[in-house]
Structures are given as structure tokens and as C-alpha cells.
Computed example of a mutant assay.
Amino acid sequence: MMKWKARKETTNIGVLELGNITFNEDYMEISIDIFDMSEEMKTEINKAIEIAKERYVEEEKDWITEHPEHKDKRCLQWSKKPVVMDFTFLRIRLEAGKPIDYSVEIGFHDAVNDSMEQWDCSITVDLSEHTKELQKAIIKVLIDKFF
């Protein structure tokens, strides 16, 4: 989704919703779906998933401490089955005055209990050697989609 702040002279008059990229005055984020990856990357994603699952359980324990009346309605045990992947995409964040930030974002839920979901899982990756290629691809998509 793309949003631009619309201004008339020096007055902000709203936000225009244009597509899948978000523009603010200082940053832009681009999401690119991942269709396939190396075995090494899959291994790293699986490590990140295990860490995110542990974090989920700790957050649930904290929530139960604050809301003990709901203890029986919360699940603290992930099933032994592999998680169900909801999304995996490359996130590119461009921010004025900062280096480009690349990360693989992962969202998943438990194979048995759909209510156990974790969408806050990411791996920072270094794609700096591909900056020129990404730059060309992003500009091409922007021009093709909007102009």
C-alpha cells in the first residue's frame, strides 16, 4: 500500500492511498514475497521460529500473570508438528540518512491450535551487494505501476 502526505502550500490536507508501498517524509518500506530459498536460509528461519515460539510462550505467561482468570483459555505448548507458515517476505526499509535495512519477515501459527500465532519473527540479512539491482527493480515497479 502506498501513502503520500498531500499538502497544499504548507498545510497538510491528508493522505493519499495508492498501493502497496508506504511513503512518509523520511522512509519507505518495500515487501517482496519469497518463493524459494537456500537450505542455509531455511535453517536460519527455523532457528528464528524456535526463538519466536519461546518468546510467544513467555509473553503468554506474562499475560496470564496479569489476567489469571483467563489461564485455562490460553495455550502455552506448541504442538510437535511443524508450524504453518502464514507469510515469508523480504522487507526493505529505506530511511533518509540511514543504511538500507533488509530483513526476512516470517509469520506462522501452530499446526494444531490456530489461535497460537506469531507474526513478529524476522531475520536481518545483508543484501548490500545487490543494492544496484534492487534499486533498478524498485524504480521499475514504481514506474510501471504508477506512471
Rank of each mutant, 00 (worst) to 15 (best):
L18K: 08
L18H: 09
L18D: 10
I21S: 02
I21N: 03
I21H: 04
T22H: 09
T22Q: 09
F23Q: 04
E25A: 09
M28H: 06
E29I: 10
E29N: 14
E29S: 07
I30W: 12
S31D: 12
S31T: 15
S31L: 13
I32E: 11
F35C: 12
M37P: 07
M37G: 09
S38F: 08
S38Y: 10
E39S: 14
E40Y: 15
M41Y: 12
K42V: 14
T43G: 05
T43S: 13
T43C: 03
E44N: 15
E44Y: 14
E44I: 06
I45K: 00
N46A: 07
K47Q: 12
K47C: 08
A48I: 04
I49W: 05
E50W: 09
E50S: 10
I51E: 13
I51G: 04
I51R: 09
A52W: 09
K53T: 01
K53W: 02
K53F: 00
E54V: 07
E54Y: 12
R55P: 06
R55N: 11
R55C: 06
V57W: 08
E58D: 15
E58A: 12
E59A: 10
E59N: 13
E59Y: 11
E60M: 14
K61I: 07
K61A: 03
K61M: 07
I64Q: 05
I64D: 04
H67N: 09
H67E: 06
P68E: 04
P68V: 00
P68M: 04
E69L: 06
E69W: 13
E69F: 14
E69H: 08
H70L: 12
H70W: 15
D72N: 10
K73V: 07
K73E: 13
R74N: 09
C75E: 13
Q77M: 06
W78F: 03
W78E: 01
W78C: 00
S79H: 05
K80F: 01
K80V: 02
K81R: 08
K81F: 08
P82C: 02
P82H: 02
P82M: 01
P82V: 01
V83D: 01
M85L: 10
M85Y: 14
M85P: 02
D86I: 05
F87K: 03
T88P: 00
T88Q: 06
F89M: 00
F89A: 05
F89H: 08
L90S: 02
R91C: 05
R91S: 09
I92T: 03
I92R: 01
R93F: 06
L94H: 04
L94I: 06
A96Q: 15
A96K: 14
G97W: 11
G97P: 00
K98L: 10
K98E: 13
K98T: 14
P99L: 06
P99G: 01
I100Q: 00
S103N: 13
S103K: 11
E105C: 12
E105S: 08
I106C: 01
H109I: 01
H109E: 03
D110C: 05
D110H: 05
D110I: 05
A111K: 01
A111G: 04
A111H: 04
V112R: 05
V112D: 12
N113K: 12
N113Q: 12
N113P: 06
D114A: 14
D114Q: 13
S115M: 14
S115K: 14
S115R: 15
M116T: 01
E117H: 11
E117G: 12
E117N: 11
Q118P: 07
C121I: 03
C121L: 02
C121R: 03
S122P: 09
S122E: 15
T124S: 08
T124A: 06
